[in-house]
Amino acid sequence: MIEVENVSKWFGDFQVLDDCSTQVDKGQVVVVCGPSGSGKSTLVKCVNGLEPFQEGIITVNGVSVGAEDTNLPKLRSQIGMVFQNFELFPHMTVLENICLSQMKVLKREKDEAEERGMKLLDRVDLIDQAAKHPAHLSGGQAQRVAIARALAMDPIAMLFDEPTSALDPEMINEVLDVMVTLAQEGMTMMVITHEMGFAKQVADRVVFMDEGRIEDDAGKDEFFGEPRGGRARLFLSKILTH
């Protein structure tokens, strides 16, 4: 479903991605972890073309992301994305947030979009918040709305960019629960997170990144089972004791 082949990216002279290759098969959940500044967020943003890259190829569902003639808006509408800081649109209500792209991109009628929106809000247990503005939601609620907003587009895959790291500890689980359900339903997911409990529960593979390189890319059992080498081990020991 998502193939990343030999991708390199520079910000000016600074290389943020160094020959990265990995893939996410249909229905798979791949967790990406690594220290901050390791390039994991940049890699995920390359997948839906939010960040351009200079070398390598990324294809999603057979479509090359970096190609000149790719219809990026169309491609992006098929890939849901959830951000660290939720990024709900502050001037719209919760329901309007969920309906905007359904109407403007998928050209759904307002009624249809709202019906779909309410269904998804029900699913993330927020149906009573539909008329509120984002500023009046808790972090956990906002992130669940953001997930609903992404799902409203009927995506074929979902990208999560540290969805729980801006949340207060007591709200992390309400978001993870939604993500676990999603994974169990067979959604293709690429998830940047340090929540190793989540990884152990639903991930098929874990990718460890450091300084722009993919240092480790292994099945879940292999990754957590035997002692990992070097940086990955140090990193794991740090985040697991927290």
């Binding site: 939010l50 990024e87 905007l100």
Partner: peptide
């Protein structure tokens, strides 16, 4: 910038991002 990214990520075009998100805000 995350707001622009969020708009683009749902498939809005740049023009739509300006029209529905950046300018109204």
């Amino acid at each position: 910038l995350g707001q622009t990214h969020a708009g683009l990520a749902t498939g809005l075009t740049r023009v739509q991002v300006y029209r529905y998100i950046l300018l109204p805000v």
